[in-house]
Simulated scan of single mutants.
Amino acid sequence: MTYEKAVEIQLEICDRFFFNRKNREVFAGDFEDEPEPSDLVYDIFGEVFAVNVINSLEGAYVIELMSQNDDLYITPIIEFFGLNKTDIVSTKSEKFELQVRKRPLEIGCSIGPLVENWGGTLGCFVKDIDDGNNYILSNHHVLFSDAGNKDNFIVQPSTSNGGKKEDAIGLFVRSIRPDPSGVNNFDAALAGPISIEMQKNIPSVGSPIMGVKSPTIGMKVYKVGIKTGKTFGVIRSINSGLKVEDDNGVILDYQDQIVISGTKEDFSTPDFFSQAGDSGSVVLEYGTNMLVGLHFCGNGTLYSCSNKIDPLFSKLRVSL
């Protein structure tokens, strides 16, 4: 389909079925008759939480239906709208939700400075080797504010997601700030100490981070971030040199970085790994939940970049 045709169908779907809140009266005789085609379609959309127009691998535009069902029955929709089988696809995914207050704190939730209108992702919980306290790990560019250490309260959720002072979980503690005049290895920061309850199990996984591991080329990985949720990818490089442009247009040089190609859960079909807002999320080996990296940038399409976690932990003097 052309983009214009796909958008036309998407709007009709939303208007007639997806956003339709009608309550149809049910009569006893209804159960003796075959359901109307429109009723079948209406029932199917009860399982759908997103209707998208996406670009397929073949270059055409298709309608994507997102649900938690890995085998969504879409034949009645194809027939009702007179579509080809290739015009519509279903994708299994977790439901979207607002970045709400999370208590206990959990990996992958929204965080940011109280005095700034930005935020990112809580990567994981770490323990300071020197004082033994618990802290959260994220990026410098997520947690830092010109307010400095003393008054830089970190809130969950971030102010951009409605966070207020009563949502403070700790203070900005220290970071490894990228240097525009040098070559960098890290973009990382700590906040805390954390005295409230922490949920250390990874959302949608149900088990904690199991340890720290060095990345390898070809390793299958995933992350949980506030923008794109749980996504998957394959490590394509583990010693990359990068030039990264920050929000002010300053070019920062990085060395010894992990580059990840985003994929769907099959680890072969290309897809996004991260988008803006996912900064600070941790990268974990698929199947083992071993921690390998801290995500800090991407190009908005298939490729994302992460700091190596082992040398980062050494630099920050923290452990799991």
Rank of each mutant, 00 (worst) to 15 (best):
M1K: 13
Y3S: 12
V7A: 11
L11E: 12
D15L: 11
R16T: 09
F18L: 03
F18M: 05
F19P: 09
N20I: 10
R21A: 13
N23F: 15
N23P: 04
E25R: 15
V26F: 08
F27G: 09
D30N: 09
P35I: 12
L40I: 13
V41D: 04
Y42R: 14
I44R: 01
F45S: 08
V48S: 07
V48R: 06
A50M: 14
E58Y: 15
G59D: 11
Y61H: 12
Y61M: 06
I63H: 09
M66Q: 07
Q68I: 12
D70F: 10
D71S: 13
L72N: 10
Y73W: 15
P76L: 13
P76E: 15
F80D: 06
F81H: 08
D87C: 06
V89N: 07
S93H: 08
Q99G: 06
V100K: 05
V100T: 14
V100S: 03
V100G: 05
R101V: 00
L105E: 03
L105H: 00
G108C: 00
P113R: 11
C124M: 03
F125Q: 01
F125C: 02
V126S: 01
G132K: 09
S138E: 02
S138C: 05
S138Q: 02
H140S: 08
H141W: 01
H141F: 02
F144R: 06
G148P: 04
K150I: 05
N152E: 02
I154Y: 00
S158L: 00
T159Y: 14
S160N: 09
S160T: 12
G162L: 10
K164R: 07
K164N: 05
K165M: 15
K165E: 13
A168Q: 10
L171W: 12
V173P: 00
R174D: 02
I176M: 04
R177Y: 12
N185R: 14
F186P: 08
D187L: 07
A188P: 10
A191H: 06
E197Y: 00
M198S: 00
M198Q: 03
K200A: 08
I202S: 03
I202P: 01
S204D: 02
V205R: 08
S207H: 06
I209C: 04
T216E: 12
T216C: 13
I217K: 14
G218W: 04
G218I: 04
G218E: 00
K220A: 02
V221K: 01
Y222M: 04
G225I: 00
I226D: 01
K230D: 00
T231M: 06
F232G: 00
R236V: 15
R236P: 07
G241S: 13
V244I: 13
V244A: 06
E245P: 05
D246A: 11
D246I: 12
G249T: 15
G249W: 15
Y254H: 04
V259Y: 05
S261F: 15
K264G: 09
S268C: 09
S268D: 11
T269I: 14
S274L: 11
Q275V: 05
A276Y: 01
A276D: 03
D278H: 04
T288C: 13
T288P: 11
N289V: 08
M290T: 07
C297F: 11
N299Q: 05
G300Q: 11
G300T: 13
T301V: 12
Y303V: 08
C305T: 08
D310H: 14
L312Q: 10
K315R: 14
L316K: 07
L316C: 06
V318M: 02
S319K: 12
S319G: 07
